[in-house]
Each structure stands twice: as C-alpha cells, then as structure tokens.
C-alpha cells in the first residue's frame, strides 16, 4: 500500500510539472502582453519596458519557467500582476466557496443520475425509461450557461424561490449546484441505467430473487452496490470536466470562487493567477482520482485482495 501511494505521489508530481510547463507555454504563446495590459493604453514604451523588466518578463522563457518552478517548490505561487497580492492568498480565500459548489454539484449529479438511471433500468423499454433517457440526453446536450439562465428565469426571477446570485446561505447554493450537476446527472443516468440493466441480468440477482427477497431489497442491497462500481471510477475522472463548468457557473451566479478569479485573471492576462488556478485544478483532479481509487476497494472486495 505504501509503495502504491509513493508511486502515485511521484506520478502526481510529474503530472503537475507537465501541466505547469504546458500552461506556461500556452500563456507565452498568447498574443497578449501582460506588461501592456498593466501599463494601460496610454503608457509610453518606456513604462511598458520598465514593467516588463520589473516582472522579469524580459528574461528568456526557460529562465522564467525555472524561476517559477523554484518558487513553486517553496510553495510560492508568485504575486498577481494586477492585484499585487500573493496568488496563494487569493486562491485560499476563494477555495472554500468553490469546494462547496463542487461538493454540492457532485451530490446533485450522483444522486440525480443514480436515481434516474435506476428508475429507467427498472422500467426498461417503458414510457418512464424513454422519458428519463430523453431528459438525460437534453441534460447532456444543453450548454451550461443556457441551463443557468433557464433556472434563474424560472426559479429566481419568476417563482422567487431562490436568490439570483450571491453566496452565504444554503438557498444560494441550490441553483449553481443544479446547473453544475445537471450535465453530469444526464451522463450518470445513462451510465447507471446500462450498468444496472447489466447487473439485473446477473446470476446473483437471480439467486437473490430465488431467495424470495423483496424487490426493494434486491435493488438496493444486491444490484445497486454492483451497479455503482463503474460510476465511482468515473467521478474521479469527472472532476476535470467539472472545473470547466465551475468557471461558467461562478461567472453567471456571481459565486466568489476560484473560477471567477480565473475568469478575471484571463481577461487581464494575469499570468501568475492563471497558473495558480490551473495548478490548483490539476491538483484537485489528481486528488479526486486518488480518492476514487481509495474508495473503490472499500466498495469492491475483489479489488481489495489484489
């Protein structure tokens, strides 16, 4: 176990290094000049050059990257160009909001997806099944900003059940979490449905029926634990997908998380913040996968013994 963890740790470090290098290169290739952005349109070439020198942007790219890595190794993500604050301080302040949103979003997608998928599987071929699968299809295909606007229009503007935007109470979380989770819910509904149909045809489900167990017990005790196994692995991978959604959802709902921070930073070409947020996201994905791998053996004894 310790060996596996150590191996994962080394792999994770390599992944983070790769992410840092690629993001750095991409930002460098961008046809926007951070120094010009900071100096403003009316600034002279000399001012821009001074700022560029101040930020170390006149150094060769390799050197810039090595400096950045050096800082990174000491836990220093650098300072924001625009806000002059430590990037880590900015991210740390916003992380709880984003984590709350993500947890709520995953909850929505898993609960909704599993419930709908199970209902569809149990009613395979009937109208309920077709209805669920159709909604799932819509959920998967609808762009998140459209879903967001729709939810805002119906539940905030028209019905007034939930606030339009903001952060702090439970009712603030509902609409953003729904927006974030609906896409994945559609995914999971389809996945759980096919996995569930597969499991319901397994011999051990027939054994359970031959024991005279109730339908509910067969579904919840025998079928569902087997049907969710592929879903657990999926959730870990999914967190990457999620980060993209977080940026959109935080922007639409004015949610003060790191997605919003990234959104502002991109507009200002605030390289350290973009780098910081990207690395944080990469770390989140790595942790998500690690957690999924650690949870899988708890649910599936066959993995445990290997």
């Amino acid at each position: 176990m310790a060996q596996i963890l150590l191996r994962r740790l080394i792999q994770s470090a390599l992944i983070l290094l790769g992410v840092a290098a690629i993001t750095f290169l991409l930002l460098y290739a961008l046809p926007a000049d951070p120094a010009r952005m900071i100096a403003g349109r009316s600034a002279t070439a000399q001012t821009v050059a001074n700022i560029r020198h101040e930020l170390g942007l006149d150094q060769p790219l390799v050197l810039q990257f090595l400096y950045y890595l050096g800082g990174l190794l000491q836990g220093d993500l650098g300072r924001s160009y625009a806000q002059k604050t430590e990037v880590w301080t900015l991210i740390a302040a916003r992380l709880p909001a984003t984590l709350t949103l993500m947890a709520a979003g995953i909850l929505v997608e898993v609960l909704l997806g599993m419930t709908l998928g199970t209902i569809a599987a149990l009613n395979r071929g009937r109208a309920v099944d077709r209805l669920v699968m159709m909604s799932a299809f819509v959920g998967v295909s609808a762009p998140q900003f459209v879903v967001a606007l729709l939810l805002l229009y119906v539940f905030a503007a028209t019905l007034g059940w939930f606030p339009m935007s903001g952060y702090g109470t439970l009712s603030h979380v509902v609409l953003p979490a729904l927006t974030l989770g609906l896409l994945g819910a559609g995914w999971y509904a389809r996945m759980v449905r096919s996995s569930m149909i597969d499991v319901l045809n397994q011999d051990y489900v027939r054994t359970a029926r031959a024991k005279g167990l109730s339908g509910a017990r067969i579904v919840f005790r025998h079928a569902l634990p087997n049907a969710v196994l592929p879903v657990i692995a999926m959730i870990g991978i999914d967190i990457g997908q999620f980060m993209g959604g977080v940026v959109v959802v935080e922007a639409v709902y004015g949610w003060p998380g790191i997605g919003q921070l990234a959104w502002q930073a991109i507009q200002q070409v605030d390289v350290p913040i973009i780098m910081g947020v990207t690395l944080t996201s990469a770390l989140a994905i790595i942790l998500g996968n690690l957690i999924a791998d650690l949870v899988a053996p708890i649910v599936d004894p066959r993995i445990r013994s290997h």
Binding site: D203, T207, A210, K211, G212, H222, P225, D300
Partner: peptide, 25 residues
C-alpha cells in the same frame, strides 16, 4: 405470497457457482 414460497418452501441452486453469489457481499 410467492416470495414466501421462494427460498422458503422451494429453494433453488443454479449452474454457475462462480457468478451465482453476489461479489460485493
């Protein structure tokens, strides 16, 4: 009532012992 009979009065053993037991229980 059929459920009370199944596994109670009439029990069944199947062909495939490798797959007839639930792997996660």
């Amino acid at each position: 009532q059929m459920r009370a009979i199944r596994g109670g009065d009439i029990a069944m053993v199947f062909q495939e012992p490798m797959t007839s037991l639930n792997p996660v229980m």
